[in-house]
Write a protein that binds this DNA or RNA. Structure first.
Length: 869
DNA sequence: TCGCGCACGC
DNA sequence: GACGTACGTGCGCGAG
């Protein structure tokens, strides 16, 4: 058997989890550790810690690691916890005075290598890469610590273009600001790599300085020779540290699940218990649930509906358009009941109560509750509170919004996870009646507990109105829209599919001929070698698994080989076939020819909706062939039409408003084409002088502003350098100083408050905005600029939908909303209502809020969604 | 079953 | 000067 030594570096950089919340450091570390133990099954293992403040390196350079902010206390507090945890796992940990964890790791790795161990180093520190060899792989933890990038000598060479032994020379030249290693000024990774590719080593470089091109570079290299060599010394890991641990002491015999379970329980890591096989402990936790009193009823009676009632309409899966109702849970202030589905549905009293707007209810998911009962002919009313939406509004970044998770966050431990009760995957099944009943009642019961606490918190954050006046009313509308569904012309889709199939086969054959062999075109893994080895095309970009064959890469090769266009066409047609033809046909209701999507109202970080099963928010439009898919979306009744209305440039208008930028506001007031106007402002030219290319570039800049992309993103979009993109953005800011001021202010505000808000007070927390990690911080800064814009636009269309729904009712119209696509509403209506809609829909959309600039909505209509253009 | 690469929309 | 760079959904592939 292979001997596998794992040495884990416990260092602060490794602790930043993906939210930058330090309280999760131990958790992140634990999941990583579990993964190593499960997947790699090490025979030997050790976790190395840094010792105190000073190390032998400070004798060389007393500013070593200077300027580094001190470890936050939230983090250092967790060190002892990690050590306790390691003890429970029987994993040795070690630190050595005057030495860094790196040196311990280097020393052990070297010893392991000499004894033919397979050594794996896990660390967040790229310095470790100098240890890479045939026997030693270095796994660098990425953002968060759950993902790692595995460096072998080959991968290192591919990724960084240097050999392991050159890593220290690389550091010598480029330095490392986080450790305060100076390096040579003006030399970054690019220059350093170039130099090392040419001269291999630092010594050789300095022996051949006269060959170096570039006056400034030469000057810097000459003047900072000492710095370079000292930097190398600092960066070099000491592989002969006087460590007291011996390899044989690190032999790993595994852990006792009870020991680990005990500490997991202390730390509150319930979810990890299962992974350490602590079945008894899980059983115990189950039994720890306090008893709950409830009645399984066989008839419904009025005293069940006393006061405000928590209601659970239980289904096993989240596809509530098709899933059966397994039972109904009902909890009032005194009692708890389980009503079997057939009992509830047969009861007139239940229906009357459900439909009584004065009988108030708290539920977990208004939309799910309404739709599931609507299918049974019950129009649920009186929905006062939605735990799901409340949780989402309190913190959209929380990625688990199910009942047990929310309950947990508010200190209630009275309900089990669905998975524990129902099982998962293929093993999921309805349990026996008592178990089912208890689980459902527990859910309903905790909803009631949660309501008060959540309401208080919402009010405290001034979010209550957003829930009560916007999200809950919207949920009712979305419920109607989903329930109504949209009719698709199945025959039409099938015909398109048949035609596509023929064309795909033709293109496929052409590709095989051009390639000279048959292969799976859909497999990038097979396509890559064909293009870049067999046909010898230029390699423009690589992915971690091989050659990139993405569209932007292929487009650059378009003129190099005939096959490229064919592949792009094949991909395009294949996408239409698999996702849009076959995908949509799969979810059409055979009886009604309707498609019922589900909107996720509690998911995106900005407040937008998303759409699943199927996603009706990404039906093709840009390319005509794809756009034809929309011909299959038709009205549900004869002599009705599809009516589509969309906001014109809503995000940029919102920006003009929020930033209060004079020029941008006036641009919209003039009613000019905004991209042309931006081109005029950025390039300082008259309207007549704006070329189509200038407009295209201005449009891309506007796009960048709206989506919060970086200079890099803009450079990718425009196919220009990052520097040019940066200049573009600067010129944009010069033209719109109000926008510039807004961008600066909002970042400051986010730093100060820790979150940003939208027009309607929707919140997004940005903990990473104070991160010391440049990437995380930059990303948070762009998010701070972008979220108020996108989020406000989302708020506005949501409010418009509520207003419009109200208006349609008031006017007694039959027109119905069917779909929402971020800035667009699609309705169906009788032809007779057309004239009225033309007036009413844009008016409702434009006047739902008043901004410093007018909002503009445009409409179109026709016999299908395609024709509504 | 899951992660990846890719592609669709806003 | 480097860092890795809008969000969301869903498909087919290929490794486990």
């Amino acid at each position: 058997m292979e001997i596998v030594l794992h040495i884990v570096h416990f260092c602060p950089s490794l602790l930043n989890n993906d939210k930058g919340v330090y309280t999760n450091a131990v958790y992140g570390f634990t999941t990583m550790l579990l993964r190593i133990l499960e997947e790699q099954k090490p025979t030997h293992i050790l976790v190395a810690f840094d010792a105190g403040k000073t190390t032998f390196r400070h004798q060389t350079f007393k500013e070593y690691k200077g300027g580094r902010q001190k470890t936050p206390s939230e983090l250092s507090e967790q060190f002892p916890l990690v050590k306790e945890l390691l003890n429970a796992f029987n994993i040795p940990h070690y630190q050595l005075d005057q030495y860094e964890a790196d040196d311990i790791i280097g020393t052990l790795a070297k010893q392991g290598k000499e004894k033919e161990f397979e050594v794996a180093v896990i660390s967040g520190d790229k310095d470790m890469l100098q240890l890479v060899s045939e026997k030693i792989t270095v796994n660098v933890t990425k953002k968060g610590i759950s993902e790692v990038e595995e460096y072998t000598p080959e991968y290192l060479l591919e990724k960084m273009e240097v050999k392991p032994e050159q890593i220290i020379d690389l550091k010598a030249l480029m330095g490392d600001s986080s450790d305060n290693i100076p390096g040579v000024p003006g030399v970054g990774q690019k220059t350093a790599t170039k130099l090392l590719k040419e001269y291999q080593t630092l010594e050789n470089l300095y022996d051949n300085l006269d060959h170096v091109n570039g006056k400034k570079l030469l000057e810097n290299l000459t003047n900072h020779k000492e710095d370079a060599f000292m930097s190398r010394e600092l960066a070099t890991i000491n592989c002969d540290s006087p460590i007291e641990v011996k390899l044989e002491d690190l032999s790993y015999k595994g852990y006792t699940s009870q020991d680990v379970a005990a500490i997991f329980k202390d730390l509150g890591f319930q979810s990890l218990l299962e992974r350490v096989g602590a079945d008894e402990v899980i059983e115990e936790t189950k039994q720890e649930l306090e008893d709950i009193r409830y009645t399984i009823v066989d008839s419904v009676h009025s005293d069940m509906f006393n006061g405000e009632v928590a209601l659970v309409v239980e289904m096993l899966t989240d596809s509530y358009h098709t899933a059966p109702i397994e039972g109904i849970g009902l909890v009032n202030k005194d009692n708890a009941y389980f009503i079997p589905t057939e009992v509830a549905l047969a009861s007139e009293e239940f229906k009357a109560w459900a439909e009584d707007p004065k009988a108030t209810k708290v539920v977990f998911d208004v939309k799910q509750s309404v739709v599931s009962l609507l299918k049974k002919g019950i129009h649920l009313k009186g929905l006062r509170f939605d735990i799901l939406l409340a949780s989402y509004l309190l913190d959209p970044s929380e990625n688990n919004h199910d009942i047990p998770a929310i309950a947990h966050r508010f200190g209630f431990h009275s309900v089990l996870n669905d998975e524990e009760v129902y099982g998962k995957g293929a093993k999921m099944k309805v349990p026996e009646k008592e178990i089912l009943a208890e689980h459902i009642v527990r859910k309903a019961s905790v909803l009631k507990d949660l309501e008060d606490k959540m309401e208080a918190e919402l009010r405290q954050h001034e979010l209550y109105s957003l829930l009560d006046d916007l999200e809950i009313p919207l949920a009712l509308i979305l419920a109607e829209m989903e329930h109504t569904g949209v009719v698709v012309d199945v025959k039409r889709l099938e015909d398109m599919g048949t035609e596509l199939k023929t064309r795909l086969e033709e293109v496929e054959q052409e590709i095989y001929e051009l390639a000279g062999e048959k292969f799976n075109i859909n497999s990038p893994k097979q396509l890559g070698p064909i293009l870049f080895e067999k046909l010898g095309l230029r390699v423009i970009k690589k992915t971690k698994t091989g050659y990139s064959t993405a569209a932007d890469v292929l487009e650059q090769l378009e003129n190099d080989h005939e096959i490229i266009r064919k592949i792009l066409l094949y991909r395009q047609l294949g996408k239409l076939q698999s996702t849009y033809i076959e995908g949509l046909l799969k979810v059409v209701d055979k009886e009604t020819s309707k498609i019922h999507t589900r909107y996720n109202q509690a998911l995106t970080q900005t407040g937008r909706l998303s759409s699943i099963d199927p996603n009706l928010q990404n039906i093709p439009i840009r390319i005509e062939e794809g756009r034809k898919i929309r011909q299959a979306f038709v009205p549900s009744e004869k002599d009705w039409i599809m009516f589509a209305a969309d906001y014109s440039q809503i995000e940029l208008r919102v920006l003009a408003h929020i930033a209060d930028d004079e020029k941008l506001i006036s641009a919209f007031q003039k009613g000019e084409d905004i991209h042309t106007q931006t081109a005029m402002d950025v390039f300082h030219v008259d309207k007549e002088q704006v070329t189509s290319d200038m407009r295209r570039q201005a449009k891309a800049v506007n796009f960048g502003i709206v989506y919060g992309i970086s200079d890099f993103g803009l450079s990718q979009n425009l196919g220009i350098t990052r520097k040019e993109a940066k200049q573009f953005i600067e010129r944009y800011f010069d033209s719109y100083p109000g926008v510039k001021a807004y961008m600066d202010d909002i970042v400051q505000e986010a730093k100060h408050k820790g979150y940003v808000t939208t027009l309607m007070n929707r919140r997004r927390y940005l903990p990473e905005i104070t991160s010391r990690n440049f990437n995380l911080r930059s990303f948070a800064e762009r998010t701070a600029m972008n979220t108020p814009i996108q989020g406000t636009a989302a708020d506005i269309i949501k409010k418009a939908m509520i207003d419009l729904r109200e208006k349609l009712k008031e006017e007694n119209m039959q027109a119905r909303m069917l779909l929402q696509v971020h800035d667009e509403l699609i309705l169906e209506a009788p032809k007779e209502e057309l004239e009225k809609l033309k007036e009413l829909v844009p008016a409702m959309m434009e006047n739902t809020v008043e901004l410093k600039v007018p909002l503009k909505a445009e409409y179109a209509y026709g016999d299908s969604w395609y024709d509504a253009k």
